[in-house]
């Protein structure tokens, strides 16, 4: 990907800028639309499918940020394993679409006011960091971080954390088995 990007940069910087913009804006709109669908729709299966779409859009955004390994992990772990878990539980519980109930307007209003405050604050935040306004160009110079670089870090500086993660997964697995046993007494 970087090789291709570097090639394009040397040939036509305007073209690469336009490509970046096209990818960012289309992926951003897709991600937010899918996320909104997750939060607003009523049928749990639809919500889960929309969440898969949102996670795939996010993986594509990771690729635009040159995090190719994380994009792969995102699709395999999140869109694959985690969402299968969600769908399994939805099927097992036989959850029906939520009954329509009056929209809680005070709560919606509170969330909207909070959202407006944050949206108004973001430009100020960006203005406070002049560096945040420098373009993030795709270039031949930037180093993409793939499995090799991340693996080297994971097994050296972050090795204790990595081992702790293993323990966490083991504890989670045992916990899930204990929680879901039919007869906790025996």
């Amino acid at each position: 990907m970087t090789a291709v990007a570097g090639d394009l940069t040397s040939r036509n910087p305007r073209k690469i800028t336009r490509m970046e913009q096209f990818f960012f804006w289309s992926l951003a709109v897709g991600l937010l639309a899918a996320a909104t669908a997750v939060v607003t729709l009523r049928n749990p299966v639809t919500n889960a499918v929309c969440l898969v779409v949102a996670l795939v859009f996010q993986a594509a955004l990771f690729i635009t940020l040159e995090a190719t390994f994380l994009a792969a992990v995102q699709v395999i772990v999140y869109a694959g394993a985690v969402m299968v878990l969600f769908l399994f539980v939805i099927m097992l519980l036989d959850v029906k679409a939520e009954a329509r109930r009056p929209i809680p307007w005070p709560k919606v209003a509170a969330v909207l006011v909070g959202a407006a405050a944050v949206v108004a604050g973001v430009p100020k935040l960006v203005a406070a960091f002049p560096a945040a306004r420098e373009p993030l160009r795709w270039s031949a110079q930037s180093t993409p971080f793939g499995a090799k670089e991340l693996g080297a870090l994971l097994f050296t500086s972050y090795a204790p954390l990595f081992l702790a993660t293993g323990v966490l997964l083991l504890v989670a697995t045992i916990g899930v088995v204990v929680l879901c046993r039919r007869d906790p007494g025996s």
């Binding site: 970046e20 996320a35 997750v38 959202a115 973001v122 960006v126 945040a132 306004r133």
Partner: peptide, 19 residues
């Protein structure tokens, strides 16, 4: 051009939707 601010704003909006 796409800057770090764009990505941070998108991240903030996504957080709001989830919240």
């Amino acid at each position: 051009e796409i800057t770090l601010g764009h990505y941070l704003a998108l991240s903030g909006l996504l957080f709001l939707v989830g919240l």
